[in-house]
């Protein structure tokens, strides 16, 4: 019988009425046990009345639509999915990585992207890192680490390492388009442990960077924000059955 169904409420109301009638009947009976019988009868009527009212309120408000809900059974478990290793995780080292994904040719870049990883990338195998996508071109590929930990004033200086983020520097050409680069986040997510739903900072070549942000799924990328505004690198979150709506 459903917790919020009319039959249960009717049953309880009927039981309440019957208990009331029975209370009237036993009121002058019971002999020496009369006080106890009366007390039990009164309590029974009170309990049934409260239960009937509670069922009515619950039916109206739908706080607990089922017996399962009343028991606290949600039928769902939040799961922290294991963060898969990036395809290139075993090959990363201290210096910059020349990244040659399968889709590289379709991006029409001047050369393969350069990827700088955070110092502790290897020490945090369960974490996914935010991304700084630098569209300024190859620039000074020999630049040392630690140059991207300040604000936007440091933008556009070429390949640099960003604390707690993966930095990808690409060299666009005249034929590079934002739509061609749309699968870059997924490709990077396949090869390295990076966030693919939020936490991308895009800097550099202004029209292309803006177009990339506009073409990316909503919420993924922000144009030229301070590096300190990036989200942290995190372990795989607890997730419920969910979907990201990309519009």
């Amino acid at each position: 019988m459903a917790l919020t169904g009319i039959p249960l409420i009717l049953l309880m109301a009927t039981a309440t009425g019957a208990a009331g009638v029975a209370t009237g009947w036993v009121w002058r009976r019971g002999g020496r046990l009369r006080p106890a019988v009366r007390t039990v009868a009164v309590l029974l009527v009170e309990v049934l009345t409260v239960l009937t009212a509670a069922l009515g309120v619950n039916r109206h408000e739908q706080f607990y639509p089922s017996w399962q809900a009343l028991r606290g059974d949600t039928g769902t478990i939040a799961i922290a999915e294991r963060r898969p290793a990036g395809r290139l995780d075993d090959r990363v080292h201290a210096g910059p990585l020349i990244w040659r994904p399968p889709a590289l040719a379709a991006w029409h870049l001047a050369g393969p992207p350069t990827v700088w990883l955070p110092h502790d990338y290897r020490e945090r195998p369960g974490d996914a890192f935010p991304v700084v996508l630098d569209l300024t071109g190859p620039g000074d590929r020999d630049a040392g680490p630690g140059d991207r930990d300040a604000g936007p004033g440091d933008r556009g200086a070429g390949s640099r390492r960003t604390p707690d983020a993966v930095t990808v520097t690409i060299a666009p050409t005249a034929t590079t388009t934002a739509s061609a680069l749309r699968d870059l986040p997924a490709a990077l997510g396949h090869d390295l442990r990076v966030t693919t739903t939020a936490g991308w900072d895009v800097v550099g070549d202004e029209p292309l960077a803006a177009a990339f942000v506009a073409a990316a799924p909503a919420g993924l990328a922000v144009l030229d924000q301070p590096v300190t505004a990036l989200p942290p690198a995190l372990a795989a979150p607890l997730r419920l059955p969910s979907r990201v709506v990309a519009s």
């Binding site: 809900a69 039928g75 769902t76 979907r243 709506v245």
Partner: peptide, 9 residues
């Protein structure tokens, strides 16, 4: 982002 719990009211 949406998240769905099967039941529980």
């Amino acid at each position: 982002t949406t998240a769905l719990v099967a039941h529980g009211g």
